[in-house]
Design a protein around this nucleic acid. Structure first.
Lengths: 219, 219
DNA sequence: GTCTATACTCGGATAGAC
DNA sequence: GTCTATCCGAGTATAGAC
C-alpha cells in the first residue's frame, strides 16, 4: 500500500492476523499525536513510537509530515462538520430536530474530545490553506439549518429571530465546553466524571434554551 | 533592564525618544507572533524581525524562548480571565450586570481577536504546567458569578436554574465566535465588516437570551 | 545594549541493507 | 515492507567584538 493514491476516508484496515496493519497503526497514532500537539508541536518520532514502528516507515507510507497531516486533518474535518441532511430532512418538529442535533453532536465530541480545538486551531493558523485544501461547500451545514429555521419561524409568525445568531448560539454552547474543559475543571473543581455528567445535562438544556429564544418575549 | 526580575504586568515603556525601547518592541512582537502561531509554531527569528532587532538580543532580554513565552502568556491570561469584581459589586440589577459583562468582554476580544484561541490552546496542551505556573485562584471568576446568580434566583424564586450552565452558556456564546471566525465567515460569506457588526449585535442578544433562560418556562 | 558569527540540538527526510 | 544509519536544514542558544 504505497502513498501514491490519497485516500479520502480513513479506514482502519486489518491484516489477516489480528493486529492492525502498520498503515492503520500509523494513522491511529498520527491522529492522536496531531490532535493533542497540533501540526507544529507534533513529532514524527512520537508518531512512530506510538505506532510501534520507526520514522523511515512513516515516510514510506506518507512521503512527509505535511501529507500525513493532511490525511488526518481531512478526516477530522469531515467528522467535525456534521452531515445534518438526515436530521434536517426528517419529519420531526424543529424542537425535535434541534434536540437530535445537539445530542448527536455532543456525543461525537465526547468520543473525540480533542477534535474541536484541533480543527479550529489549524483552520485559524492557515485560513487560506484551509479554504483551498479542506473546505467543502457541501459542509455548509449552516445554510440548511438557516433555511429550516426561517421557514419554521414564518409558519409560526416568529420572524424576530435571526437564524445566524440562533445557529451560532447553539453550536457555541455545544462546542465551547470541550475547548475550555481543563480551565473549566480547574475553575469549578469538577473531576472527569462530574464533567461528563455536566455535559450530558447540556444535551437537554441547550435545545430548550434555543427553543425558548424563539419565543417573541425572549429575543 | 535585564531579565533578572520577572514582570507581572507588561507595560510598553517608552524611551526618551519617540520610539519604543527594544524591550517594549520585543514584547509587542512576541505577543503577536506567539498569539498567531502558538508556542511551538513561533520562531525566535520572526519575533526578532518584527521587533527590528536580532535574535541575540532576544536572549539578552529574556534568556530563552520559554521565558519569553511565559511573560507573554501570563499577561494574556490576566486579560482573558477578567476582573469582574467591579461589575459584581455594583448596585445594578442582574440584567444590567450581565449586559455590562458581555459588552466589556466582547469589546476586549474585538481588540484582542487571537487571545481566546491562544490561551485556550496553550492551556489545553500542557494543563499541568498551566495550573502550576499560570493559574491564579483570584481568577476564579465563575465562583463569584455563581453566587450572584444564586442569590438573585432565590430572591425571585427562580431556583430552577443551574448557575454553572448559565455562566458557561454565556461565556460560550461570547467567546466561541472569535474562535470560529474564519470558518464562520467561509460558511456564511460574511466579510470582516459584516462580521464585526454581527458581533456587535451579540452584545445585546446574549444577555437577553440568558435572562430569558432564567424564567421558569424556558428551562 | 546591540551586533556578527558560530556552536549545538533537534527533527524531518533519505540511502540502502535485509 | 521494515529496519539501521546517516544526512542536512532549521532553529535555539552562546561567544565575543564593538
Amino acid at each position: 500500500m504505497v502513498n501514491s493514491k490519497i485516500k479520502t476516508k480513513i479506514k482502519t484496515k486489518i491484516t489477516t492476523g489480528n493486529r492492525p496493519s502498520a498503515e492503520a497503526r500509523i494513522l491511529l497514532a498520527a491522529r492522536h499525536v496531531f490532535m493533542t500537539k497540533g501540526m507544529s508541536g507534533a513529532r514524527m518520532q512520537d508518531i512512530a513510537d506510538e505506532a510501534g514502528i520507526n520514522k523511515a516507515l512513516l515516510h514510506y507510507y506518507f512521503k512527509n509530515k505535511e501529507r500525513l497531516f493532511d490525511v488526518i486533518f481531512r478526516d477530522a474535518s469531515s467528522v467535525f462538520f456534521p452531515k445534518i441532511t438526515g436530521i434536517i430532512e426528517s419529519t420531526d418538529t424543529l424542537e425535535k430536530k434541534l434536540e437530535k442535533f445537539c445530542c448527536a453532536y455532543i456525543d461525537m465530541m465526547l468520543q473525540n474530545p480533542f477534535l474541536p480545538l484541533f480543527v479550529l486551531t489549524e483552520a485559524n493558523k492557515r485560513p487560506a490553506e484551509f479554504r483551498k485544501k479542506f473546505w467543502r461547500t457541501r459542509e455548509q451545514v449552516f445554510q440548511k439549518f438557516a433555511e429550516e429555521i426561517s421557514t419554521e419561524a414564518e409558519k409560526k409568525k416568529e420572524l424576530n429571530i435571526n437564524p445566524a445568531h440562533l445557529f451560532l448560539n447553539m453550536i457555541s454552547m455545544c462546542i465551547f465546553p470541550f475547548i475550555a474543559k481543563p480551565i473549566w475543571q480547574m475553575s469549578t473543581g469538577m473531576n472527569d466524571k462530574e464533567f461528563r455528567e455536566f455535559i450530558d445535562e447540556r444535551k437537554k438544556i441547550i435545545p430548550q434554551l434555543i427553543i425558548a429564544s424563539l419565543k417573541k418575549k425572549c429575543l
